[in-house]
């Protein structure tokens, strides 16, 4: 962790925008909400972390080749086009974009998934994809919003 959550809050307050948005720390938040329920000042830290991630993606200044924002965007795209996530395919895409060597190092895990019948190769998808896409794009008038294309 480059910055602890407390340091992130202090940097935000002191308006060190670049430092915050470039920090890997915000991407390390796994959304376990421990800090949110723990904070003696009742700061909703997890939600703030989300807001910062959104901002970093919007402004395109998240740490490069860092797998977490890449995963988030791949996830975003897959949901947009298919309506559902196929985890194995998502992870493959992540590895290809972020660190193809990881594919090699986790081959045993892949084989294990095949053996246990958990490796899904066919895309899960919903029927009414047009409806969903329409809904997700319904708020495009807001110029702050991003389309999946920009996110790509």
């Amino acid at each position: 962790m480059e910055h602890s959550p407390r340091q992130i809050m202090a940097l935000v307050r002191a308006d060190f925008k670049d430092e915050v948005l470039r920090s890997r720390s915000i991407w390390l938040c796994a959304s376990c909400y421990a800090c949110t329920v723990e904070c003696p000042r009742e700061i909703r830290i997890t939600d703030i972390m989300y807001a910062l991630k959104q901002r970093a993606i919007l402004e395109g200044i998240y740490p490069k080749r860092f797998p977490i924002p890449i995963l988030a965007k791949e996830f975003f795209k897959m949901v947009h086009s298919k309506g559902r996530i196929t985890e194995t395919l998502l992870v493959m895409r992540l590895f290809l974009r972020a660190n193809w060597r990881a594919v090699l190092s986790s081959w045993r895990q892949g084989i294990g998934l095949i053996r246990t019948g958990r490796f899904v190769l066919r895309h899960e998808r919903i029927e009414n994809r047009a409806q969903l896409a329409g809904m997700l794009d319904s708020d495009l008038h807001d110029e702050r919003r991003i389309t999946p294309k920009e996110a790509a």
Partner: peptide
């Protein structure tokens, strides 16, 4: 992951 990209969506 989705929440990391866009809250409203």
């Amino acid at each position: 992951a989705y929440m990391s990209v866009d809250e409203t969506k």
